[in-house]
């Protein structure tokens, strides 16, 4: 039985597939980056349909916002035209088709879309849904899992972001404060 949200889901997936082909075929990097931002926005819409409102929120802000700006800033420095490859591209295509065929074969054993009996819904998650309201007292289950039950994970992720920020600073040589101190000494 097809419901309205399933139709929206299918339409958005089709849209994403078309955008992915566009990205693969396009040679102008400026167009590639802009289409990538659009792709992120469409996937954010898809996440909303799939009930992941928090994820949709993040993807819309990150993918269509910051990520596009950073890639465009890079293009400003490295140029926007991709050199046409000299080697034939049959081999990558073959590799992709074979890998894809194996992955599709693997999905045949997967639980169907939306199946409430799927293994993923049997363990841990029911507990979060049932008791997080009383234990944590926060209505948004995603927030209580993110910040409290899985606080260690999130601390790790925050440290990864911190490290990435430090890495960018080191690569681009903009850690002003410490360089000046070295000069004085």
């Amino acid at each position: 039985m097809l419901e309205m949200t399933d139709l929206v889901d299918l339409a958005l997936l089709l849209f994403l597939a078309v955008l992915a082909i566009t990205i693969a075929k396009q040679r102008n990097l400026f167009v590639v980056v802009i289409v990538m931002g659009f792709y992120s926005l469409v996937s954010a819409a898809l996440f909303t349909v799939l009930d992941a409102v928090d994820v949709a929120f993040t993807e819309a802000a990150v993918g269509a916002g910051i990520s596009t700006v950073i890639m465009l800033a890079t293009l400003l420095m490295v140029g926007t035209e991709e050199k046409t490859p000299s080697q034939p591209r049959i081999l990558p295509l073959l590799a992709v088709v074979v890998t894809g065929a194996f992955l599709v074969f693997g999905t045949l054993d997967m639980p169907h879309y939306g199946d409430p009996q799927a293994p993923i819904h049997q363990h841990v998650a029911p507990r979060y849904i049932e008791v997080s309201g009383d234990e944590i007292g926060v209505p948004n289950i995603v927030t209580s899992v993110l910040a409290s039950y899985r606080g260690y994970d999130t601390l790790g992720e925050t440290v990864v972001i911190f490290t990435a920020g430090v890495a960018v600073l080191m690569l681009m040589g903009q850690a002003l404060r410490f360089r000046q101190r070295d000069g004085d000494a």
Binding site: P139, N140, V142, T143
Partner: peptide, 12 residues
């Protein structure tokens, strides 16, 4: 805590 949102989204 009450609706969709949190530190990651707000930061971005």
């Amino acid at each position: 805590d009450f609706g969709p949102g949190g530190g990651f989204q707000a930061g971005v």
